[in-house]
Amino acid sequence: MKITASIVTYNNNFDDLKAAINSFLETDLDIKLFISDNSETDKIKQLCNDSRVEYIFNNCNNGFGYAHNIAIKKSEQLESKYHLVINPDIYYKKGNLEKMIEFMDKNEEVGLMMPKILYPNGEIQYVCKLLPTPFNLFSRGFLPNWKWVKKINDNYEMRFTNYDKVMEVPYISGCFMVFRTKVFSEIGYFDDNIFMYLEETDISRRIMKKGYKTIMNPETIVYHKWEKGTHKNKKLRNITIQSSIYYFNKYGWFFDGERRNINRKVLKKNEKTNNNIFRN
C-alpha cells in the first residue's frame, strides 16, 4: 500500500510545520510526503531531510488548490491508494493515521474522510458543515452573533450532531482530508480558479455527486492550531469574498436545487443512529 500526502506552505512557522511533518512520518506504513512550497524563497527545504519527503519549490503563489494539485498528480504517478491533504499547523498522535487507513479500507463507499478536529486545548473545532448558502458565509463574516444568526450558523456547522459519531458531511474541512486517490481520475482536482477558501467545499461536493460518501470519523483525532486568519486579515477576507463569488456563480446563489437536496438528505440521515451503516 502506498499512502501519499501533501502540505502546502507559504512562509509558515517552522516549528508548526516540523510538527506536521513529524506527525505524518511517525508510522511504519508505506508513505510519501510532498511539501509544495509557494513561498518566495526555499528556506523550508531544510526541514525536508527525510527520504520519504519530496520538496517542491513552486517559486510563486498560485493558491492552495493549485499547489496541492501538483502533489496529487505526482501521487497518481506513484499509484498511491490514499492521498492526504494536511495543513502546516496540524499535528496528531501516533496511531491515528493507521486508524484512518483502516477505516477507509473497510468502507469502499467513502471517497473522502476527515478526522475529528480539535484545538490544542482539546476543544472541538466545528468544521463539519452543510453546503453553504450565501447567507451562511455573509452572516459569519459581517453580522453580529445575534441569537437567530447563531442558531442558523450552529445548524450550518452541524453542532446538533455533537460530533460524536461517524457521519456524512457535505463540506469537509480542507485542514485535513483523506482522499481515495482514484476519485481524482473520476472528478478532477482542486479547482485552480479558487485561490483559497471554498476549494474544499467544491471538491467535497463533486465527490458526493459522483456517488461517494464524504465522512467525519471521530475515532481519529488531529489537532489544528487554526488562527482564523480570515477574521483578522483584510486581504484574506477579500480572498474569501472572491472565492465565494466564484463558488456561487458556479453552483447557484439562491436557486441551487442540488445544494438543497444534499443538505436535506444529510440532515435526515444524521437524525438517525448510524451504527449499522459503517463497518467498525
Score class of each variant (00 low, 15 high):
residue 208 M to A: 08
residue 187 I to W: 01
residue 216 M to Y: 07
residue 263 N to G: 04
residue 238 N to K: 15
residue 186 E to I: 02
residue 179 F to H: 04
residue 228 K to Q: 13
residue 176 F to V: 07
residue 207 I to P: 00
residue 198 L to C: 09
residue 161 T to H: 04
residue 261 N to F: 12
residue 204 S to T: 04
residue 170 P to G: 01
residue 255 F to P: 05
residue 224 H to D: 08
residue 156 Y to V: 01
residue 213 K to F: 09
residue 247 Y to A: 04
residue 232 K to M: 11
residue 161 T to A: 04
residue 253 W to I: 08
residue 253 W to Q: 06
residue 199 E to Q: 07
residue 224 H to R: 08
residue 160 F to I: 10
residue 210 K to L: 15
residue 201 T to S: 11
residue 187 I to T: 04
residue 169 V to L: 01
residue 161 T to P: 07
residue 202 D to F: 01
residue 213 K to V: 05
residue 209 K to C: 06
residue 188 G to H: 03
residue 226 W to S: 11
residue 185 S to G: 14
residue 237 R to A: 12
residue 175 C to Y: 11
residue 159 R to D: 09
residue 159 R to G: 05
residue 154 D to L: 06
residue 181 T to L: 07
residue 153 N to Q: 14
residue 220 T to S: 15
residue 241 I to D: 09
residue 190 F to S: 01
residue 162 N to H: 13
residue 177 M to D: 02
residue 159 R to S: 08
residue 166 V to R: 05
residue 211 G to W: 02
residue 233 N to C: 11
residue 165 K to D: 10
residue 189 Y to N: 07
residue 240 T to Q: 14
residue 200 E to K: 02
residue 211 G to S: 07
residue 203 I to G: 00
residue 176 F to C: 06
residue 188 G to K: 03
residue 180 R to I: 00
residue 165 K to M: 10
residue 184 F to K: 00
residue 244 S to K: 11
residue 176 F to S: 00
residue 205 R to P: 03
residue 151 K to H: 08
residue 187 I to C: 03
residue 243 S to E: 06
residue 182 K to C: 09
residue 233 N to V: 09
residue 226 W to P: 05
residue 198 L to N: 08
residue 199 E to V: 02
residue 212 Y to H: 00
residue 229 G to Y: 11
residue 208 M to I: 15
residue 191 D to K: 04
residue 260 R to Y: 13
residue 158 M to G: 03
